[in-house]
Structures are given as C-alpha cells and as structure tokens.
Amino acid sequence: MISSGTLHVIGTELVVGTFVLSGIAFLMLFLQKGVYSSDIVAHWALFAGLVFTPLAIFSGISASPNGPEGNVMLFNKFLLSCAAIGLSVGLLWNRYQNQSIHINRVHALLGMVTVCLILITASFGGMYSRGESLTPFLPKDVAFVFPAWASVILLIMGLIMAGKSAVEHR
C-alpha cells in the first residue's frame, strides 16, 4: 500500500523531470541548434510527461484534505495542469501530422510555454506544502472561476479551432 501523498510526490517528480527535459529540447529547437536530436527529445519527453500528468493530478486531488475545490492554490494548480495537458496534446498532434513542424519556432515557443505552466504548477505545490517556492512573486490567492457559460464558450472555441485545423489538414 502507498499513500496518495507519496504517490503524488513520485508522480510530480516524473512529470517535472520529463517536462524540464522537454523544455530544454524545445529551447534548442527555438534556437535551431541540434534540430534533429532536439526534435526527438522534446516530443518524446513531452509525451512521457503527458502520460504521467494525470497520475500526478489525481493523486494530488486524493492527497489534499479538502480537494482543489476548497483551496485557491490547488484550484489554480488543477487549471494550470489542464492547460498544460491541452498544449501538450496539441503539440504532439501537430508533430504527428507534420514531421517538419519542429523547425517552426512558434511550435517550439509553445513547447516552452507548456513546460513553464508545469513548473508554475510545481511551484504552487511547493508553496502549498512547504510555504515556499522559487516564485514567491506569483499571486497565490487569486483564482479565476468561470461561470458555466464562459466554460461552454471556451469549449466551443477550442472545438472549432481544433476541428477547423483537422479539416484543413485533410
């Protein structure tokens, strides 16, 4: 048996480690250095991070006493993780469909943004559990709780953009 807290620590270490590796490779892609190897490392590490992220999210929710619904910092962590998953899926999807997209610097930049979101999420975790982090300047008590209609609009916009891209690809 293993507690949710311990599993969460293992999960976050895997997620942060793989995402940081991916972020370094995306930086190399952005700088157009070692493009071939960086392309492979960036996307495979991103894939590994994406696989471990749900484990980290759900073990974290299970480990917290009141869940993310009752704490601003945990709520923000959840949303940032979801955004990072979305960006990761999009990046990998693009890479799967377009083998040469790695020379697109916007693609590399979005990869770094994804890693940045994961690192901010981890930073919030440090602030929540130990009261300290590398980013003490980030606001920790502000949460953007959308009303249902705003979430619906966001969802529809996302589906339209993703769907349109899929149609254009064909």
């Binding site: 959840f78 955004a83 998953i85 999807w93 693009n94 589906l159 953009m161 891209s165």
Partner: peptide, 20 residues
C-alpha cells in the same frame, strides 16, 4: 471545476492546432 478544466484543455488544444 472539472468542466472549466476540460474546457481549458480543449481550448489549449485548439490554440496549438492553429499553429500548425
């Protein structure tokens, strides 16, 4: 909370998909 998270996830996929 979960609905907002999923909506944000799909929206982010859509944003990145436009980049291609």
């Amino acid at each position: 909370m979960y609905f907002q998270g999923i909506a944000l996830l799909i929206f982010c996929i859509g944003i990145v998909r436009r980049v291609k």
